[in-house]
Simulated assay, not measured.
Amino acid sequence: MTPEELNARLLYRDGLMLVVDKPAGIAVHRGPKGGDNLEAHFDALRFGLPRPPALAHRLDRDTSGCLVLGRHHKALEKLGKLFKQGHIDKIYWAIVEDGPAEHEGLIDLPLGRLDATRGWWMKVDPLGQPSQTRWKVLGRGTDAAGKAIAWLALEPLTGRTHQLRVHSAAMGWPIVGDPVYGSSGRGTGIGLQLHAREIVVPLYKNKPPVKIAAPAPAHMIERLKACGWVEEAIAPIVSEDVAD
């Protein structure tokens, strides 16, 4: 990724925080096997500061959308506390197979590690950590093959690994393109249909929360349109006057 390409994906910038529209298919940080990662390109996002920004949280390699970065140590400490205490609201868009019969609901299923040999793969586990996801149907349709799909807004109330993917699959409507928990995956050319659409960060005491939305990614547009989504324009927000 070139510095110009990364800058073009900047959704929000102020004195403490950046929000980047992460592309699907790239890890946010270097893994044990190496390879390209988004963090390796953060030097292009210094904007005059002596050090590059750093990750305030994580997104899966195949998930696109809002990724929050702290611009310095003080900012990272503040953001880290907000994420840990559950004060940051997140909405994801997902295209799922079939879809729920109801219009909205809450998934309350504890999650645990699948087994020691599967890394971060997860499963529903009565002895696992409490995990909750609120969901709402935004549209329904069929894909090019005539299969029923639904467009959901997913709000994770807890932050477990792969939570949205495991919860969706456990409900009988896995996320389209999920190579681990779905019925179609890597190699199909579909791509995981999961997008971190919106994030709301209460970063400043005397100001309203910062609300940022990421545009729909190219690999999801076909199915989003099939479910009734209408294209939109999202302009980046730059507010350099906010410093602390």
Rank of each mutant, 00 (worst) to 15 (best):
V201E: 06
K74S: 10
P202S: 08
Y92Q: 04
G35R: 12
A170G: 03
D89I: 14
G31K: 11
R134F: 01
K74N: 06
I26N: 05
A169R: 12
D125G: 04
A216H: 08
P236R: 07
L82Q: 03
L38C: 00
R30N: 04
G25Y: 14
E97K: 14
L45G: 01
G128K: 09
L16C: 08
L111N: 00
D62L: 15
P217I: 11
D115Q: 11
P53C: 08
Q132N: 02
E240Q: 12
H219N: 05
N37L: 14
L10S: 02
M171H: 04
G34F: 15
K81W: 13
I199E: 03
A196M: 13
H57E: 05
D36G: 09
I199Q: 03
V210G: 02
L55Y: 04
D178T: 09
L55M: 06
I26L: 12
G65Y: 10
F42G: 00
G105Y: 04
E4H: 07
A101W: 09
D125N: 14
G119Q: 11
C227N: 00
G70P: 08
R223L: 15
H29E: 07
W93L: 06
T188G: 07
A216L: 15
L109V: 01
F42L: 09
G34K: 14
I199S: 00
V68P: 04
L16T: 02
K33I: 09
L69W: 04
H87T: 05
M17K: 06
R46W: 09
N37V: 09
A144T: 14
R58D: 01
I88P: 01
L69D: 00
